[in-house]
């Protein structure tokens, strides 16, 4: 099935190329830089390196991965927004610097106007988790309890992140007593939940802890269900108009030649759908979620507006 899909996608795109003319065929003539906005060795870095190494073979030029950590990803975004629009500088980036941080404070770039999305290839699911012996069996029960006056504390990977803003919105709309406790990183937030220091944690990478019956998954913040836990609804399905779609995608500076963008999209889509990449991501415990550049652009635009609204409401307090 996936082989057939790969062949078909390949066929569709190669037929597209025939009509693209000589311009795109000349690209790339020298090495491409792929900027990663986080430190070397993190999941975004490791997956971007694998994707790049698979794409190298297709493009015939090396792709050099460059780590530019800091500012929760905004430093790298700012640098790439100002880079040459020749298709030789790309960025593998995530939800937070794309549509969460820019909604909260000035970052020095516009994630819609300054970038051309190429494709989305991953995005870890964020779950709403409680301890396995918690009285709350469903997300509704949790919110009902918080509405009736019980103060419920929830831990996240950091202040003003997507999970935090999403939950603030729920607290506001339902007049629920949800108290945010930010930690430095999802790992510390998970540990705090395991130790019973917070009631709820909104974190990714929960699979084994749930399977081991240490934690219980009440809902998924994403716009689709986690394939590992298909019985657990998204918050939207549970009746709360909130979602935090997690994206990991490749972008180029806005104004890059459309032919080059098309070639990159075709190449990266092909390798992201390859069995080798899927197997690799499974080991990393990361999903492969391929989305076209156009769709990624729409997701970013829509969420940027939503989160701007949330941040505005929060600051009016």
């Amino acid at each position: 099935m996936s082989l057939l899909k790969t062949v078909l996608t390949g066929a569709v795109f190669s037929s597209m190329f025939v009509s693209l003319g000589a311009n795109a065929v000349d690209y790339p003539t020298h090495p491409i830089t792929m900027v990663v906005p986080y430190g070397a060795g993190g999941t975004t870095d490791i997956s971007a390196r694998k994707l790049s190494s698979l794409a190298e073979a297709e493009l015939g030029q090396p792709i050099v991965v460059e780590n530019r950590p800091g500012g929760s990803g905004t430093n790298a975004m700012r640098a790439v927004a100002k880079a040459k629009k020749d298709g030789y500088t790309l960025i593998a980036t995530t939800s937070s610097p794309l549509f969460v941080t820019p909604a909260v404070r000035p970052v020095g770039y516009d994630s819609v106007k300054d970038f051309t999305p190429i494709l989305n290839y991953s995005g870890p699911y964020h779950g709403v988790l409680v301890q396995a012996d918690s009285p709350y069996e469903s997300f509704d029960e949790l919110i009902a309890s918080a509405k009736s006056g019980t103060s419920i504390s929830y831990g996240t990977a950091g202040a003003m992140g997507g999970p935090h803003l999403s939950f603030e919105l729920i607290a506001r709309e339902n007049k629920a007593k949800l108290k945010h406790v930010p930690f430095s990183g999802a790992g510390s937030a998970t540990a705090a939940l395991l130790g019973g220091h917070v009631d709820v944690a909104l974190v990714p990478a929960y699979r084994d802890l749930v399977l081991d019956s240490k934690l219980r998954l009440l809902g998924v913040l994403d716009d689709s269900r986690d394939p590992d836990f298909t019985s657990v609804p998204t918050l939207k399905e549970a009746g709360y108009d909130v979602e935090f779609p997690s994206v990991v995608g490749v972008m180029a500076p806005a104004g890059t030649d459309p032919d080059i963008v098309a070639k990159l999209e075709a190449t990266f889509t092909k390798v992201a759908n390859s069995d080798e990449f899927k197997e690799f991501m499974t080991k990393l415990n990361q999903p492969v979620r391929v989305m076209t550049g156009k769709k990624l652009g729409e997701t970013i635009k829509m969420n940027l507006e939503t989160f701007r609204q949330v941040a505005k409401e929060l600051s009016q307090e």
């Binding site: 430190g39 070397a40 060795g41 993190g42 999941t43 490791i46 990183g185 790992g187 510390s188 998970t190 540990a191 395991l194 990478a205 084994d208 802890l209 399977l211 081991d212 240490k214 690799f280 080991k283 990393l284 415990n285």
Partner: peptide
């Protein structure tokens, strides 16, 4: 034992274990 890294170095090591198919955590 928990799959929870305490700092940057152990977070990188966690990734390395995962890539080798030895997913850290309760199992």
């Amino acid at each position: 034992a928990l799959g929870i890294p305490g700092d940057a170095v152990t977070a990188v090591i966690l990734g390395a274990f995962m890539l080798q198919g030895l997913a850290p955590g309760p199992f």
